[in-house]
Design a protein around this nucleic acid. Structure first.
Length: 959
DNA sequence: CATCCGACACACC
DNA sequence: GGTGTGTCGGATG
């Protein structure tokens, strides 16, 4: 068939839809050289006419033609309403497997609507005559063979980001003109809603666009016109000659348009060209929060929390349990249907059908009664996504019921299903709008008309109040709900008082005494309250976002309690989270009374522990039960906490070293090279520190003229403003001078250091003259055996598991990683405490230990010494450097690059070395691991989990 | 007195 | 511009 033949045939045709549709479609297939449905798929399972038609009644199907993964196609008679056909396809899209294209035709026109998820919908209209145009015909051909070719480039996410950025910039300009940011936020939300309402035709005839155009002609009238429009939206009524629906909602309760300039009107007018109906409702929230807060304004238009991340909580907590229930109900319904169809008497049949109806009604009623609470709902995007998920599920159930021949139910899941608590007045306001926009969008996209008068029903879904402390200092009640979701605010324990104020802090302390440690992050109060709600039966489950630090320290207490009174059934332990610029990492935690196997980081596990690690079915290992060991006490220390600029460049220190002092003592006594993490992971920076020790009086310190003058200038002013009496009083000393550490270092000529926060857990030797800064942790031992044990895979694994994180980077914490670590028997810190060390022929240094452990000590020390030497040669190749004696005796030689090797030497850092993982390094570590494994008396073939399990057992046995 | 934390801060490859 | 490491106030035990 040629296009001309097709056109002539169908121009003439006056047949009705029912008689002509299939023939029209078959002709099209011929024209496009495609197989007809029956020829392509005789079973009709993937490509057929009348998909979803109920065979027994011959009733209307979901689509006239359906090709799985391609399109749903609906015909109407000539000049009939194609919009209605489109609405029908939309409504049945879930039953049709969400085809990417929804095509409607009245046999003269063919309209292809794209419906790829997450893209801005597009449409192509083809008239009969267009079929002569090969490029138009190609579109149709793609619909049959390769619908991906029709995927719009613009995603709704991209559209949303673009709109957010543009709108944000515009709002920022308003703020810069001196308008109050809260007023700008409120006004911009009103305008945004107008743009949305216009694009879904709630505001008729492009009314908002025309208003802006008139405004450009009569700038003086703009403010009055806008006031009139917004006022009319608040109450419903006439705007000019146009009838405006009653929108209601507090959004329009307060109308005070800001003065707009011509440029503003032009910008707004350009916004009307965007497709606001396809916008993600969460944009409103993002815009609001960023537009309102001057600190966040720089982020306007930047990233916003990705819906997929939110679904990682909404899915397991809200949707999965309901889906599971629906599956079992559906199974029962299918059995009843089969029984009814097979029934011999109408009475029996009716009885089965009544039961069937009751099951469906029951399921829908359950959905209608379902309540989701977000007690920190912000601008409502969690609630919006929960509502959308519930509506999708309800729709699916309704369609399944219809398929069983039951009468179609009207969807009843609506904003009444979601409850929110939000402290911020405008965010709360906005959350209501966000949820309603989501509702309206969903209804229209699924072919349902909106119920009006008002459009935004006065359901009090969002309460504006504090969720964890009442104004009178008492504990707030949360409404009863089925589940709790949300992303509560994070605020580190020590920042709480400063940001929230003394009264609020005291109230928190009082209300949650014994439940949440006072040093915990603010987010923990939401976790504890959610746990309590579940405990008293006011919720079944909760899914909350938290800082990833909830896995350790005092924050973990709330998870410990959760694991005691209920159960964590789903978690993501450490995920990057969108928060512009900052390296924020979060844990997503779902807990409560939902019977489902636990899933951690998308993998089935046997149990999830409070630190968000898992036990497998073979190895159950809750390392949070590990105890601090006596034999490890007072060996690992954090370096000094200076709290002031006591550090000076090496060259300045050297100048001072040469200067005399009035009391004839050298500055050498108060000047030492400093070591922090960077000195360990990169190269030594040659930074020195003025150190008046732990108890030198000011009267003596001032004899060291230059250093004292320096800190009088640089440190004293700052320290005298410190909140702590002792820091103010002893300003010339380091705030935490670590007397314990200094005592433990006594008589050691070297010690072991490791960076507190570092990508790799490396240990290095430092000459005793070095002073460790707080970001360097030290172990007060000089023997290679201890060094080797710490650098073995045993301690590496343990420290990773037991330590915490600063953002994405592991952090070593003395109490939880070192003091809990069970050293091999006979080689514990208690066993190596004696200073009686012995140097072997190789140069390795072993501690004096009981004779039966001496062989292990030697083997480990040799391997460790070898590792350290290899590493040192790599870090400081003798050919590239000069070793220069320090100007004063008693300091180690300086390592100075030969000029031609300076750049290369700069790259020789421990982090770079471990990034590269050269074979010799891997081998050296393997040798070491073997020696240490022998000391533990275990195989070198153990898996990581097995090593950890053995260490945990050893720890518990010793504790 | 010592340790821990950061909806981070910032220097430097 | 990404990578990697660090400050310092405040709280706890």
């Amino acid at each position: 068939m040629t296009p001309d033949e097709f056109i002539i045939k169908w121009q003439r045709s006056t047949l009705k839809e029912s008689s002509a549709a299939q023939e029209h479609f078959c002709d099209l297939c011929q024209l496009l050289n495609e197989l007809t449905p029956a020829a392509a798929d005789p079973t009709g399972a993937f490509y057929c006419f009348e998909r979803g038609a109920i065979k027994t009644t011959g009733g209307q199907g979901w689509a006239d033609v359906w090709k799985d993964g391609h399109f749903g196609w609906e015909y109407k008679g000539k000049h009939k309403d194609l919009k209605a056909a489109f609405v029908q396809l939309h409504r049945y899209a879930p039953a049709l497997n969400h085809p990417p294209l929804l095509i409607v035709s009245d046999m003269e026109q063919i309209i292809i609507h794209t419906a790829f998820t997450g893209t801005v919908p597009d449409q192509y209209t083809l008239t009969l005559n267009d079929l002569r145009d090969p490029s138009k015909l190609q579109l149709l051909k793609w619909a049959f063979s390769d619908p991906e070719k029709l995927r719009p480039i613009d995603t709704t996410a991209a559209l949303t980001e673009r709109a957010a950025r543009q709108f944000g910039e515009w709002a920022e300009a308003l703020c810069q003109r001196g308008h109050d940011s809260a007023a700008v936020a409120h006004f911009s939300q009103q305008l945004l809603f107008c743009l949305f309402a216009q694009d879904i035709e709630l505001l008729p005839n492009q009314l908002f666009t025309r208003l802006l155009e008139n405004g450009l002609k009569y700038p003086a009238q703009v403010e009055q016109m806008l006031t009139n429009l917004l006022d009319t939206m608040a109450t419903g009524g006439l705007f000019g000659s146009e009838a405006i629906d009653w929108f209601n909602s507090g959004l329009f309760a307060e109308v005070q348009p800001l003065p707009l300039e011509t440029a503003d009107l032009k910008t707004l007018h350009s916004f009307t060209k965007l497709n606001w109906s396809a916008i993600e409702p969460s944009i409103f929230g993002t815009l609001f929060e960023r537009g309102l807060d001057p600190k966040q304004r720089a982020q306007l238009g930047a990233h916003y929390t990705d819906p997929n991340s939110i679904m990682r909580l909404v899915a397991p907590v809200v949707l999965m349990p309901l889906r599971k229930e629906w599956q079992s109900v559906q199974k029962e319904m299918l059995q009843l249907k089969t029984a009814a169809d097979a029934a011999k008497s109408p009475a029996v049949r009716d009885k089965q059908l009544t039961k069937l109806r009751a099951l469906l009604t029951g399921m829908l009623e359950q959905l209608n009664q379902f309540r989701v609470l977000d007690p920190a709902c912000g601008s409502g995007n969690f609630l919006f996504l929960a509502l959308k998920g519930l509506k999708d599920l309800e729709h699916e159930i309704i369609l399944a019921g219809e398929q069983l021949g039951l009468m179609r139910a009207f969807p009843t899941v609506s904003p009444h299903n979601v409850l929110g608590i939000e402290k911020n007045h405008y965010a709360a306001e906005l959350a209501r709008v966000t949820v309603w926009i989501g509702e309206i969008q969903w209804m229209l996209q699924h072919g349902f008309s909106l119920s009006k008068n008002p459009i935004l029903k006065p359901i009090n879904i969002i309460e504006q109040r504090d969720a964890v402390v009442n104004a009178d200092g008492s504990e707030p009640e949360w409404p009863t709900a089925d589940v709790i979701i949300g992303n509560p605010p994070f605020l580190g324990g020590s920042k709480k008082r400063g940001l929230l104020g003394d009264d609020y802090f005291t109230a928190l302390e009082t209300i949650y005494a014994g439940r949440v440690p006072a040093g915990a992050d603010l987010v923990c109060y939401w976790f504890e309250k959610a746990r309590a709600q579940i405990d008293i039966g006011k919720a079944r489950a909760a899914g909350l976002v938290s800082t990833n630090s909830i896995r350790g320290g005092s924050n973990r207490k709330v998870l410990d309690q959760i694991c005691q009174t209920t159960r964590i059934f789903n978690a993501w332990s450490d995920e990057p989270w969108v928060n512009d610029g900052a390296a924020v990492r979060v844990s997503l935690i779902s807990f409560g009374e939902i019977k489902t196997p636990p899933v951690l980081n998308d993998e089935r596990v046997a149990v999830i522990y409070a630190d968000l690690t898992a036990g497998s079915s073979e190895i159950k290992m809750d390392v949070t039960t590990a105890k601090q060991l006596k034999e490890n006490a007072a060996v690992c220390f954090m370096g000094v906490s200076k709290k002031g600029a006591f550090d000076v460049a090496g060259d300045l220190a050297r100048q001072w070293l040469k200067l005399p002092n009035p009391h004839h003592k050298s500055n050498k006594l108060v000047l030492r090279p400093l070591c922090n993490g960077i000195d360990l992971t990169r190269r030594n920076r040659d930074v020195w520190v003025i150190d008046f020790g732990t108890d030198m009086p000011e009267s003596e310190a001032c004899f060291y003229e230059k250093p004292f003058a320096y800190i009088t200038e640089e440190v004293k002013p700052i320290r005298q403003n410190n909140n702590r009496e002792s820091y103010r009083q002893y300003w010339w000393r380091h705030a935490e001078a670590r007397p314990g550490m200094r005592a433990a270092l006594h008589n050691l000529y070297r010690f072991i250091a490791t960076p507190a926060v570092a990508k790799y857990r490396t240990f290095s030797w430092l000459d005793a003259i070095f002073l460790a800064d707080q970001a360097a942790l030290i172990i007060t031992r000089a023997d290679d055996s201890t060094f080797g044990i710490l650098h073995s895979c045993f301690h590496q694994l343990w420290s990773l598991k037991m330590g915490t994180n600063l953002g994405a980077t592991p952090r070593y914490t003395p109490t939880t990683t070192f003091e809990t670590f069970p050293f091999p028997i006979g080689l514990t810190p208690a066993d190596t405490a004696s200073n009686a060390i012995e140097t072997l022929n190789s140069g390795a240094i072993i501690p004096s230990v009981a004779s039966e452990y001496r062989a292990h000590a030697i083997a480990i020390a040799e391997a460790a010494h070898q590792l350290n030497q290899l590493r040192d040669h790599w870090l400081n190749p003798p050919e590239w450097i000069d070793r220069v004696p320090e100007i004063v005796a008693g300091y180690p030689d300086r390592i100075i690059a030969k000029p031609e090797y300076a750049a290369q030497l700069k790259q020789r850092t421990l982090t770079n070395l471990y990034n590269k993982q050269p074979a010799w390094l891997v081998n050296a570590h393997q040798q070491l691991d073997q020696a240490v494994a022998a000391a533990y008396g275990c195989s070198t073939e153990l898996s990581e989990a097995e090593i950890l399990q053995q260490l945990l057992q050893l720890n518990l046995a010793r504790a």
